[in-house]
Nucleic acid binder design. Structure first.
Lengths: 213, 213
DNA sequence: TCTCTTATGAGAGTTACTTTCACTTCGGAG
DNA sequence: CTCCGAAGTGAAAGTAACTCTCATAAGAGA
């Protein structure tokens, strides 16, 4: 297995691996190898121009193994798993904090996490997702079934409203909307501005009723 | 060509056709035939279970013709073209009307239009889009590059703000979010409630700053 | 060391989509 | 009316993303 890969915080990762049974260790390593090689090939020669077979050759696995790890080629790029953190921080907010402010606190906690730990690969990934229509669409679908569902849980829980209540749904969908907005704005600035800060501003602006001149 | 199709306001359509040169007429008829047969097959046996070849057989065309009319199988279901109406009504609003209220007026004008004219096929289409993840994702992408872009134009035009201004982007993305919310709520009620009304309520709620108890 | 479970690889098959090329048909100019 | 160019169409072969099946190999537990 080639070692000329971008190594996203390798020490921490290996330390984490050491505690797992060998089988799990190999699985995680394979999974990560596929992702790393795929991301590298995508940025090198483009998403559409890279075939699954090429990724497999680079990662030294068979195509059947590829699809055992990732149901589709698109899923290699989409690897969010930050929703639990979001939920945890949100629930830890004292009850007198408003829903929007609790959400802002939660995002302030979750975004810096991914932002600091693997900044460059994340920028590559987001840039890739925005560049490829198919990936953009998949990311939306992923956020809809993931982040949105979590937010609906949290908001209905905190307000006592039904999950199906129009206000809960509208609130969460609007938040999802400005999250997308923040990501686009962030990318347009070439990741120059601070993403957590941007998200926070967007949420505040949303809570203020989107006042325009 | 079979005539046992759901006939969406056929008289009006034929009247419209009569004014076009023969070539355009045939093209539109072929296009519509593909869509009708596809939608019928999709609802009968499911989206994934229907192959393009089956659609072609039903519409009596060749697969190459199919892809000449629709770049992908998904595009058969996505056939929005209401953004111009939205823009027109929005621009017709007097300058003292707020951005959000102008938008509400625009949506009140555009939604009843599609809603009244082809109610049943539209419900089928939306239901299909929501049921199939791939279609959901594509619809988002379509609204992002279509409706959202139009809204950004309109809002920046009316406020004098730059299109890239964070407030313009956040505003439009939030609106797009609650639009999605309204569609989901609508479908959950089995299209029982009034969609235009639902959209209007959502926009008002958004403009009020999403007040939760 | 010997099973038993589970990950993997090989290969064939399906389907969405692409590309090319020859054929037909329509619309207009003379 | 007729011919000519443009445009729609179909047949067929090709690519790539998946899917399925089955045989093999490698870790886990006794």
């Amino acid at each position: 297995m080639s070692t000329s890969l971008p190594e996203r915080s390798l020490e921490r990762f290996d330390e984490y691996l050491r505690r797992l049974p060998l089988r799990e260790r190999k699985k995680l390593r394979t999974r990560r190898a596929i992702q790393d090689h795929a991301l590298r090939l995508f940025t090198e020669r483009g998403y559409g121009a890279t075939t699954v077979d090429q990724i497999c050759a680079a990662a030294e696995i068979s195509p059947s193994t590829f699809f055992r790890y990732f149901p589709t080629k698109e899923d290699v790029v989409l690897d969010d798993e930050y929703d639990p953190i979001l939920a945890e921080v949100f629930r830890a907010q004292p009850p007198d904090v408003s829903v929007m402010d609790a959400l802002r606190a939660a995002f302030r906690a979750v975004f810096p996490f991914v932002y600091e730990n693997e900044r460059e690969p994340m920028i590559d990934r987001v840039r890739l997702m925005m560049a490829e229509p198919a990936l953009r669409a998949r990311m939306f679908e992923s956020m809809r079934s993931g982040t949105l569902a979590v937010m609906v849980d949290l908001v209905s829980e905190r307000t006592g409203l039904d999950r199906a209540d129009m206000r809960v749904q509208a609130f969460c969908w609007a938040v999802l909307g400005v999250l997308h907005s923040a990501m686009y704005t962030w990318l347009d600035s070439d990741a120059d501005v601070d993403l957590p800060e941007l998200v926070d501003q967007n949420l505040k602006f949303l809570g203020d009723g989107l006042p325009l001149p």
